[in-house]
């Protein structure tokens, strides 16, 4: 009897092992195959938006703001833009690249103004690189989710591609009383993708285990009109092209995003 039970338990063992042996092989590929546990911390990027070059004021939706170069009075109802692909650089030249880092900054949603980058390996970082806009791959890869979902209404349905930046509002200087700038473009002459970086110079950003380090940045949307004309001349952009490039690159390529301070 005992031996029967013994044999039976062997068969039961066999049964279990075979029945689990050819399960679906759809385990998610691990992005970072790290054999050794690396200690990690969190980095947050805290964005505050300012207006004006001297005598700066806070950039607030629904208030009249006078542009220092065009002298237009602009009252923004919408200001949204994509920031993506965060990369962290150490003094020794090594990099940490954050996978799936896509953020839609939306001035009407305060929580979107703090970008959280989890799982950054501990260490001292000299620079943080990031991209203004959404990389070309994600513009051509079908239905996306999260910050890139079409339901965020930052996707051109009829001419596939992301609106990288949306600025809308009213202005007495515009012939229609309004302005609507939908800026984007990821390929060829219309490619607006711009990599920017924050340099911490001597004062590197230290990431410690299970701790949050924060970089406080100031963003100045006024740079959109660095080369673009007054809204009395141009009050609407709805597709990639020269106008979109002039306006977006004014904001993307200049000193529009600056480091204020860091808290570690």
């Amino acid at each position: 009897m005992k031996s029967n039970i013994f044999i039976f338990s062997i068969f039961l063992g066999l049964f279990l092992s075979v029945s689990t042996s050819c399960k679906k092989k759809t385990t998610e590929p691990t992005l970072e195959p790290t054999p050794l546990a690396v200690e990690k911390g969190i980095v947050t990027i805290d964005l505050s938006h300012k207006w004006g070059f001297t005598n700066q004021t806070d950039f607030v939706l629904g208030t009249d703001l006078i542009h220092p170069m065009t002298n237009d009075t602009l009252n923004f109802t919408t200001f949204k833009y994509y920031v993506s692909n965060f990369k962290f650089k150490k003094a020794d030249g090594t990099w940490y690249t954050q996978p799936e880092s896509y953020f839609l900054v939306d001035l009407s949603t305060p929580s979107s103004l703090v970008l959280t980058i989890p799982d950054v390996p501990v260490g001292d970082y000299t620079d943080v690189y990031y991209t203004m806009g959404v990389d070309s791959t994600r513009n051509v890869s079908g239905a996306q989710t999260g910050a890139l979902a079409a339901s965020n209404l930052m996707f051109w349905n009829w001419n596939s591609g992301y609106v990288f930046l949306k600025a809308e509002g009213t202005s007495v200087n515009s012939s229609t009383g309004t302005f609507q700038f939908h800026l984007g473009g990821f390929s060829g002459a219309n490619n607006l993708l711009t990599e920017k970086y924050i340099n911490f110079s001597n004062n590197s950003l230290t990431v410690s285990a299970n701790h949050t380090s924060t970089a406080f940045l100031q963003v100045n949307p006024g740079w959109l009109w660095h080369s673009a004309p007054s809204v009395s001349v141009l009050n609407m952009i709805h597709m990639p092209g020269t106008d979109a490039a002039t306006m977006a690159l004014g904001f993307y390529t200049n000193n529009s995003i600056i480091l204020d301070h860091i808290v570690e």
């Binding site: 513009n139 051509v140 890869s141 079908g142 239905a143 079409a150 339901s151 209404l153 996707f155 349905n157 009829w158 001419n159 596939s160 591609g161």
Partner: peptide, 28 residues
Amino acid sequence: MWDGGVNHLEVQPLVPLTNPLEMGESIL
């Protein structure tokens, strides 16, 4: 589309779904 404006099978339905001359609905 006739003009090739859409670059992926998955996002094609966004056009007829949201075009005011076709199904006229919003994604939301």
